[in-house]
Write a protein that binds this DNA or RNA. Sequence first.
DNA 1: CATGAATGAGAGTTCATTCAT
DNA 2: AATGAATGAACTCTCATTCAT
Lengths: 202, 202, 202, 202
Amino acid sequence: MARTPKVVEDRREQIIDAAVRVFSEKGFERATNKDVAQAAGITPGLIYHYFASKEDLLKAIFEEHSPLRLMRSLPENVPDLAPEAMLRWVAHQILSIVESEQYVRLARIFLAEVLYNPSMASVGFAAMGEVVGFLEHYLTLKMESGEIRSADPALMVQLFGGSLMAMVIRRQLMQDPLALHYTHEQIVDGVVTMTLRGWLQT
Amino acid sequence: MARTPKVVEDRREQIIDAAVRVFSEKGFERATNKDVAQAAGITPGLIYHYFASKEDLLKAIFEEHSPLRLMRSLPENVPDLAPEAMLRWVAHQILSIVESEQYVRLARIFLAEVLYNPSMASVGFAAMGEVVGFLEHYLTLKMESGEIRSADPALMVQLFGGSLMAMVIRRQLMQDPLALHYTHEQIVDGVVTMTLRGWLQT
Amino acid sequence: MARTPKVVEDRREQIIDAAVRVFSEKGFERATNKDVAQAAGITPGLIYHYFASKEDLLKAIFEEHSPLRLMRSLPENVPDLAPEAMLRWVAHQILSIVESEQYVRLARIFLAEVLYNPSMASVGFAAMGEVVGFLEHYLTLKMESGEIRSADPALMVQLFGGSLMAMVIRRQLMQDPLALHYTHEQIVDGVVTMTLRGWLQT
Amino acid sequence: MARTPKVVEDRREQIIDAAVRVFSEKGFERATNKDVAQAAGITPGLIYHYFASKEDLLKAIFEEHSPLRLMRSLPENVPDLAPEAMLRWVAHQILSIVESEQYVRLARIFLAEVLYNPSMASVGFAAMGEVVGFLEHYLTLKMESGEIRSADPALMVQLFGGSLMAMVIRRQLMQDPLALHYTHEQIVDGVVTMTLRGWLQT
DNA sequence: CATGAATGAGAGTTCATTCAT
DNA sequence: AATGAATGAACTCTCATTCAT
């Protein structure tokens, strides 16, 4: 008797998955319901059994597959790692999540939408806020302990994360060869060294 | 006499300006020719006197108002500034150009287009490459002189620029309050300090 | 069961029929999709469920209702009729097929199209070739048997058929009263007598 | 002082000539005023100084360049030629006029128009009537003198002319290779022999 | 649940025609 | 006389959405 809801869930999921694929390839506007239906192996009419409209399908993608939810895999309490180990671990974590095919697909759709509907960005801020918050907390502690130079910790975290974010945008969304030239290892190395020690010879 | 070509240029310009406004607000796909015409104070048919198609109008925007052309205002010969002064100047330059209303409009259109048409990105890479190349050259010299720690200069520049780029994206395109909280001064200070000296207490 | 394909066929057929009527009255260019839809009792959009474009609808008319397919009702083996009976029968056959309302409609559309798109004429040449070939074969045999004067049989058949073709064009397509003045009987009589015996008193 | 009207005539003529070329190549509907203007070396607006509308330009073509007017070059009084010489001369005359580039152009436009506007055909009937009348008169005389078999002279002439007309249509308008295979000489020979003596061996 | 034929609103585009210059 | 920018009506075509089956 628990079959109907299960099937319903499956169909919904199936349609959402197809939509992610189609929207991320052609863009929401350019993709038609027929495209989505085809990709999902169903007929266009059926979409309307599970979603009120095409727009609604897009919202469902964000609500149920938020690209940022994936990043909530950070530890609850700040581990007591040395700054370098910590940054290295976070950078690696971010890169490996964020450069997965699934994530890139969602990010593309999300970014395209946010560009003309900034109110939707709030969905993203929450998750991003968590990452920022986590590192900010860590930084604050390390500043108090004197291990790290005093500065606005939130800004520092944003600059650090931004380096990575911009890299990923140029690599995955714009396919800039200049950015694609590096391995994760090189990027992590570079960003961690720069962030912690800076360019200047000491 | 010689007025006709001027008028033609004016109309073209007028339509392009209207299109930039409309496209940047609603997105290229969502914006209609009627919208553009209205914003330009003409009738939709007239667009086709100056552009072969809606797509062609979009291309004209990029070709004639390339958002990246604006950044080609870098000094010809690498000035012999100290790293801090240099970075500070570059960061300021970038921020002030890139956060202008006109530039943000173009960037929004450009980014949205590039997401689903990466081949168009090449237009952007050229200009971005110039900025990167300029700083890379500077960095290389300073590394040779021992003033700056040895590292992949291109990667360093990309990480530095990425910090700013991500900041601008979050501020202007996503209107992230977390990012909007800072002044140009604070951002420049933060990014320059971090980039040159790093987080670690020395 | 098995009804859906039937309905689909019906709609297609219905649209094609309407298109034949409309195109033959106003011409392909002058007729609008709205006209066709109205004549078919549907909305314009539906045409695109069955045909890729207006042009495609035109092609479908020719492919599925080829005006020349109708003339493929010639006897398989050359019957051993005397020349007069044979010509009389062929002339009658041609006239009765070719002066039907349906045929005239198709011919009008076809001719109009061929005038500016001679490549399309090949569709017609095939069927016309069959009729010509059939009579040519007959003529050749009769020339060999000495019953008919030696001459280029293909040319002879074309001239004979041309007499009829021109008559039909002037009657049905141009409605020339001079040509409409005659009955089928009179035309057949005239063309057969002239073709076989010529004008000269013998 | 007779210059202005002359220039006007020239411009009109120039536009009409261009229109004949353009209409005969693309068809009246598919050809645009811009096409015509370009072909005439003027601008579209100027057409409206000489013609009330595009339609009007088409009418002017027919009125001033009637394709059938060209055929009015027949002798006033029936010459006393033997039937064979006469038919041969007429057939040659018709073919050489009617297969000229200028004539074919006009005929194409005319035929395309007449297909959907049979009332316009009357323009053509007059001229065609003259040719028919001429030969009909000749035939009647020869029938009375017993040289030619008694029959409906008008029908005979139409069948004779139809053979040629159909040949020309297939050659020039449909470019049927079957018809293009013959020279004028062969066609004249064939049609005259057939018309006068018929197919049957005597 | 599922289909896909059908609709209707509206998009991009074309072009005959006008008219200020 | 001549231009060509400008208009507006109409066209082809697309597609989200509905609904009878």
